[in-house]
Design a protein around this nucleic acid. Structure first.
Lengths: 342, 342
DNA sequence: TCGCTCATGGTAACCGGTTACAGGGGGGTG
DNA sequence: CACCCCCCTGTAACCGGTTACCATGAGCGA
């Protein structure tokens, strides 16, 4: 592998000149630059970025630490991040905490010297724990995690209001007994969504202790919830799942047990993953624009890398929008009966 | 940010001793080691990986270069790669060629010095072009790209046989006029699938010039194809799309125009993306185990990093399996008529 | 008690670029 | 014609960690 020294020798100049020519620093004459460039071509030279990052103190890379790499939610986030990163010539280093808090620390630590900044999505971590692991000197933006107490900028989704709005919409459709399928116990998104649901039920329907089934954001959890409902022990005419994947699982399992969506029971999700438009009936959900979560976060990080100091006050909160589709389309289903139901 | 010298000073030893203690090289007494470790803790020292990779000549990172980051196909690949990489403590550096050959070169070049090896998926590139951009000294595994001529190991899917088998299955279901929706013109997967289709049609149905509609692997392309079919100019009783996304688009659009799947027309895809089980009717497809594509490739790359020399002869070819689901379930649809159709 | 061996720790060079500073040559001007 | 200045180029130190090689001292046998 050719080094800068090799190029310099080949071009008959010093390493300093070669470096300057390659980086276009101006104080190099045209013929000299041409000679260097010719040598670069000939030797197929590519600067060693490890060495470069040592002196420049930047790596042109940002670390992305996600709780998992499963499903469309994360692939959409990464796509959003990549879109912005690519425009600025930044690379993406993927870190995966595989759900454990211990791994999170390791993932963050292992990024030192590799990245200029960090995008972290730590849904299961307590702010104090997180603060202990983050390096204050490393520009960081949190995804989907409101952390005003830490004074770290974040991009969050207003889960509470989204869940409140969705519950309100279900009740407006005439539902009386709305059941919530919750997300993981320690997941902050899940908890905010649950709070929104509980508050809406209390304030609008006067229901002080609505039914909440356990879940973990997986499709299987949605199916499990549907099985519980099928036993018919509790009155229910609408299901609000804390995310789309569980809603999808629930719909499929309800179909197995003969309950018709939306004729017998309404179903709604949260996130608007691409899949939501493809299930049958199509899924009513809160649209989050997941890719925007990533792209917005990346843009904020870029600003920090350019020298701006951003604190928690610079954070962005995305408000999800209600998308009404087939699973809550009472009217349409009444007309169509049990016949064709796209 | 603390450096090794700081740690050494704090612990009252030399940098060499500090380094040895941290890396557990043995020739350090227990008390010395303890002192160093205490200093590490106190100063919150984390080795600078850029500097480390300079001398060690390894980065513990592998580069992953994909044509795009869109859709479940790629998220599944990344998941498969991450699974294996994580076990070996490897990091993933994402590169995106955004479809263009020029970007591909840039992506590969920019990885130098950043990674120990490369996983590349270049569906649109000619072998010669690819060879010109790859560094022979950098261990590389190709994904979904058979390149025996370059003597680079690859993990590929037997697209030809898969397409042949699918066409055969459609014909066995009684279809006479099978139409193929092709993938991008220069995409090798797409071309192999098309060849498999054409050969099967010729050999089994004696059809020498089957209808082939243009496509580009996008959902929209599938819808467009369905619109063409709806005009009714050509006889058609089955559609074989070159990938699942187009098949899904086709099904949705066929629904709009009143054609019933599978009663009026059979539909099949290729890839078995997660979505395939969720559309209605569920999609018949060739199962590729996309994640295995990634994990197998990563395992091969790890072997190369451990010093083994792998050539094209060490490649793996995954044979896709036929998964029969709702979109080709003639019998079931005949029984159920236009009623409930899960 | 002396000399030898061996374990342990220190010094300094090196990985491959970047860049502060010094030096040298050419052109313009008094 | 001499001097100055500016611009280009070169030398060398440095980024932070690793490691070859050397020095030192302890431990052991004779």
């Amino acid at each position: 592998m050719a080094t800068l020294r090799d190029v310099a020798r080949e071009a008959g100049v010093s390493v300093a000149t070669a470096s300057r020519a390659i980086n276009g620093l101006g104080n190099v004459t045209a013929p000299t630059r041409a000679a260097v460039m010719a040598a670069v071509k000939k030797l197929n030279f590519v600067p060693h970025s490890g060495a470069r990052s040592l002196t420049r103190r930047k790596t042109d890379t940002v670390g992305v630490i996600l709780p998992d790499l499963f499903g469309e939610f994360f692939s959409e986030i990464i796509r959003g991040i990549d879109l912005v990163a690519h425009e600025s010539g930044m690379h993406l280093l993927l870190g995966n905490m595989h759900g454990s808090a211990h791994e999170t620390a390791a993932a963050i630590a292992s990024m030192r010297g590799r990245v200029d900044g960090l995008l972290v999505m730590p849904p299961e971590l307590k702010p104090e724990t997180l603060a202990g692991h983050l390096d204050p000197a490393l520009p960081t933006v949190l995804l989907n995690y409101e952390a005003s107490s830490l004074d770290i900028p974040y991009v969050a989704v207003d889960n509470y209001r989204g869940a409140y709005a969705m519950t309100e919409a279900l009740l407006a459709q005439g539902a009386r007994h709305v059941v919530h399928i919750a997300g993981p116990k320690h997941n902050r998104d899940a908890r905010d969504r649950q709070r929104g649901f509980v508050d809406a039920m209390a304030r609008i329907a006067g229901e002080r202790s609505p039914v909440i089934l356990p879940g973990d954001f997986s499709e299987e959890a949605g199916m499990e919830a549907a099985r519980l409902l099928a036993q018919g022990q509790m009155p229910v005419d609408a299901v609000f799942a804390a995310n789309d994947l569980m809603a999808v699982g629930c719909i499929m399992q309800l179909g197995e047990t003969g309950k018709k969506v939306p004729a017998d029971i309404l179903v709604a999700g949260f996130d608007d993953i691409p899949l939501a438009r493809h299930v049958s009936p199509t899924l009513t959900t809160m649209q989050v624009h997941i890719d925007q979560l990533g792209s917005t976060g990346m843009m904020m990080l870029l600003r920090m890398l350019r020298g701006e100091t951003l604190g928690a006050s610079s954070s962005t909160v995305l408000t999800p929008a209600l998308i009404t589709r087939g699973t809550t389309a009472r009217l349409a289903s009444a007309l169509a009966g049990s016949a064709v139901q796209p």
